[in-house]
Computed example of a mutant assay.
Amino acid sequence: MVTIHNLHYSYRRQPVFAGLDLQLQPGHIYGLLGRNGTGKSTLLRNIAGFLFPQQGHIDALGFTPRKRQPAFLAKYFHIPEDFQLPDLSLPRWIQYIAPFYPDFNRRQFDHYSREFAIPAVGGLRELSYGQQKKALISLALATNAPLLLMDEPTNGLDIHSKSQFRKVIAGAIDDEKCILISTHQVNDLENLIDNVTILEEGKILFHQSMSRIAERLLFRLSFDPEEIAQALYSESALKGHAVLLPNREDQDSRPDLEMLYKAVLLNGKKINALFA
């Protein structure tokens, strides 16, 4: 679906990526986690073909994104972190955009619009920022593009809308689609993604499926001082300490993305060694 090999990119001699490699497969929802300014948006823009690799190669859906071929543009949808919708009504906007996407489904768009409670009357610019974001997400899903790139899609959404976002995204994925969601709000992707990619200072520090994470790592509360001291990562909780441990006895636990993210930044080499 997407293969990135030896990607180099910099802004005015300020390097962002220097030899980045990454593969994304269809049928998965990837969470791209990282702090602001670490290269998440730049990576998405390179995949979309808005920015051009200065060295290396990107293959997306069998196309070279930088060429911006019409057949490629019809197969992906990019939701940027910052956007401005046109001064149009919702129906007129759809009328203009839909022809560019052969698999666009108006019934799906109407369904997502109802799920998000988007007003059907008035202009797009009369909507709040959160409502505009939900309209853009609804459009992205209704295109049925096999590749969706979402940059901080939950920014501006209230708690209920974030829950609806997770619901509609989970219902939209199938074996032919790949969804890459960039965020620094780790908890917004809980119970949604099936693969975690952690980016820090232009490098992929961690790239694993949620199933392997649950298999190799153990997340739990501990009251044992020795266990806490030996943990890969620990932090104080209301009761005891939340700890991250090697899962040596095949125990069940629910991965905590926020804890995993902090642990990888602090102790990435030891954690990655458990997946070798």
Rank of each mutant, 00 (worst) to 15 (best):
T3Q: 13
I4F: 01
H8V: 15
P15C: 06
L22M: 08
L22S: 05
G27K: 01
G27V: 01
I29M: 04
G31C: 02
L32M: 03
G34I: 06
R35Q: 12
G37F: 01
G39F: 02
K40G: 00
S41V: 09
L43M: 12
L44Q: 08
L44G: 07
R45F: 00
R45L: 08
Q54I: 02
Q54F: 02
Q54E: 02
H57S: 15
L61R: 08
P65F: 02
K67Q: 14
K67D: 12
A71C: 05
L73P: 01
A74G: 05
H78I: 07
I79V: 14
L85V: 14
L90F: 11
I94W: 07
I97E: 14
N105A: 14
R106T: 15
R106E: 11
Q108T: 10
Q108N: 13
D110F: 11
D110V: 11
Y112C: 08
E115G: 09
E115P: 09
F116H: 06
A117V: 12
I118W: 05
I118R: 02
P119R: 00
A120N: 12
A120P: 11
V121M: 10
L124S: 10
Q131S: 11
L141E: 02
A142H: 09
N144Y: 07
L147Y: 01
L147H: 03
L147K: 01
D151Q: 08
P153S: 06
P153N: 05
T154M: 01
T154W: 00
D158V: 06
S163Y: 15
R166K: 11
R166Q: 06
R166W: 01
I169Q: 00
I169R: 00
A170Y: 04
I173R: 00
D174T: 04
D174M: 06
D175L: 09
K177M: 08
C178P: 01
H184S: 07
D188K: 05
I193Q: 00
D194G: 05
D194L: 06
I198Q: 07
I198R: 09
E201D: 15
L205Q: 12
S211A: 14
I213N: 00
I213M: 04
E215M: 03
F219N: 05
F219P: 07
R220M: 09
R220T: 12
L221D: 12
E226F: 10
I228N: 05
A229E: 13
L232V: 03
Y233N: 03
S236T: 15
L238K: 14
K239D: 14
G240H: 12
V243G: 04
L244V: 08
E249C: 10
E249H: 15
D252V: 14
D256H: 15
L257V: 04
L260P: 04
L260I: 05
K262F: 15
K270Q: 13
I271P: 10
A276L: 14
A276I: 13
A276E: 15
